[in-house]
Simulated assay, not measured.
Amino acid sequence: MQIQINTANNIDGREALVAAVEADVRAGLSRFGDRLTRIELHIGDESGGPSGGGDTRCMIEARPQGQDPMTVTDHAATPDLAVSGALRKMTTALDRVFGKQDDKRGH
């Protein structure tokens, strides 16, 4: 599973954030690792201020093998909260999709 993290220029501590987010994504989505080819995150401060502290958005796009990409978005006060909220939403969506596939196959 390939992970790509994109941050806006107005996010403080981008390098440390990227390392922490990648670890969170690997841990949070590890059980789907063999079924996903790529995970892409976009993190940005929608208020546009250089100091942050505004409306932070995290969008996650997951690409399951042989299927259309899935996207979720979460807004929060900090990048960490936005990422964890988006990871929760993506986990729920992937559980639903893969659960339906497994059920159809009789597993």
Rank of each mutant, 00 (worst) to 15 (best):
Q4C: 11
Q4Y: 09
Q4F: 11
T7L: 09
A8V: 00
N10R: 03
N10A: 05
N10F: 00
G13F: 09
R14S: 05
E15Q: 04
E15V: 00
A16L: 00
A19Q: 06
A19N: 10
V21H: 08
E22M: 07
E22D: 02
E22R: 00
A23I: 04
R26E: 15
A27I: 04
L29E: 03
G33N: 15
R35H: 13
T37W: 10
R38W: 04
I39R: 07
I39A: 14
E40F: 09
G44L: 02
G44K: 07
D45T: 02
D45N: 15
E46D: 12
E46T: 15
G48F: 13
G48K: 01
G48H: 02
S51D: 14
G52Y: 02
T56G: 03
T56M: 14
T56N: 15
T56S: 09
C58I: 02
M59T: 15
I60V: 12
A62N: 08
A62M: 10
R63I: 01
Q65Y: 08
P69R: 02
T71W: 09
V72A: 00
V72P: 12
D74M: 11
H75W: 11
H75R: 12
H75E: 10
A76S: 07
A76T: 01
A77S: 10
T78H: 11
P79N: 08
P79A: 08
D80L: 04
D80Q: 13
L81G: 13
L81I: 08
S84M: 08
S84W: 06
A86M: 07
A86Y: 09
L87C: 01
R88L: 12
K89N: 09
T91A: 15
T92E: 15
A93S: 10
L94V: 01
R96D: 14
R96Q: 12
V97G: 01
F98Y: 04
F98I: 01
F98H: 00
G99R: 08
G99Q: 06
K100F: 10
K100C: 03
Q101F: 13
K104T: 09
K104M: 13
R105T: 02
G106S: 09
G106R: 10
H107E: 12
